[in-house]
Amino acid sequence: MGDPFSLAGAGTAYQEHLAPAPLRGHFGQLWQSQLAADAGGHITVLPDGCVDILWRDGTLLVVGPDRVAAHPALAPGAQVLGARFRPGQALAALGLPLADIVGQAVPLVELKAGWAVQAAGSIGDTAPAERLQRMAQCLQQHMGAAPIDAQAQRANVLFQQLASGQASLDALAARLNLSPRSLRRFSQAQFGYGAKTLERILRLQRFLRHGRAAPLHSLAMLAADAGYADQSHLSREARELAGMTAAELRLEWGQ
């Protein structure tokens, strides 16, 4: 969930905060989503190249990177809490190939995190308004310290450059001193899929950001601003990655 507009559903309230300083070695943002008491069913989560730790239904989960939109089912009034890993930090923190959890939600306890069951219960026993703070305390206790090593720094450069659209894959490979094939393997290790897929996902996220910043722009103008060849290219990518038209995406997330 790379930005507040990656998740939508009827009656969904979403808030995002910068992770507190003790957690910033691993995590960039903490967030929470609250469904209204009369709202439930499936929500839509767009791919964003990120990995999150979620508290949902009383369990701590690791949610791997998505290739296409996900549609988790939530009960009416459900609360979901999340901690989003910084680019490049999930691999180091979790110690498993991210390609193995693409599109999956895995209980954190299954990843040799025996503390996860007690922590999840502690979060659930806390008042709803204070649960995100309690989750942060649990993560700080068990996952707070994290060095930013060279591989994580390279992964962050790759992510930020693709998110901004400021460099081609060939240029990034040269900047990172990698061959195109090595860049693909590096991206698979750090993000769960190759750099080309990551580029497509982050370009779609860029379209959503531009749509919010320039609500009067046409789809053709936004497509050009986001780096698509033309509006038809945007339309194909929207359907393949999000399962909806570009106009529907803009209506749902670009307001």
Results as ranks from 00 to 15, higher is better:
residue 3 D to C: 10
residue 3 D to I: 02
residue 3 D to Y: 13
residue 5 F to I: 00
residue 9 G to D: 07
residue 9 G to R: 03
residue 11 G to S: 09
residue 11 G to M: 12
residue 18 L to G: 15
residue 24 R to H: 08
residue 46 L to R: 10
residue 62 V to D: 02
residue 62 V to N: 05
residue 67 R to Q: 11
residue 69 A to T: 06
residue 70 A to G: 14
residue 73 A to N: 08
residue 75 A to N: 07
residue 79 Q to L: 15
residue 80 V to P: 10
residue 81 L to F: 06
residue 85 F to I: 01
residue 85 F to L: 05
residue 89 Q to E: 04
residue 93 A to E: 07
residue 111 L to Q: 06
residue 115 W to I: 09
residue 120 A to R: 00
residue 124 G to F: 08
residue 129 A to H: 14
residue 131 R to V: 09
residue 133 Q to H: 15
residue 133 Q to W: 11
residue 139 L to H: 11
residue 140 Q to I: 12
residue 147 P to F: 05
residue 152 A to C: 14
residue 156 N to C: 11
residue 160 Q to I: 03
residue 165 G to R: 00
residue 166 Q to N: 13
residue 170 D to K: 08
residue 170 D to T: 10
residue 176 L to I: 11
residue 181 R to K: 15
residue 189 A to S: 12
residue 190 Q to G: 03
residue 192 G to Q: 05
residue 196 K to V: 09
residue 196 K to P: 05
residue 198 L to Q: 06
residue 200 R to C: 00
residue 203 R to M: 03
residue 204 L to V: 03
residue 205 Q to V: 07
residue 208 L to W: 00
residue 209 R to E: 06
residue 210 H to N: 08
residue 211 G to I: 00
residue 213 A to M: 13
residue 217 H to V: 00
residue 218 S to P: 03
residue 221 M to K: 10
residue 222 L to F: 01
residue 228 Y to G: 01
residue 230 D to L: 06
residue 232 S to K: 09
residue 232 S to Q: 13
residue 247 A to D: 11
residue 249 L to W: 14
residue 253 W to C: 09
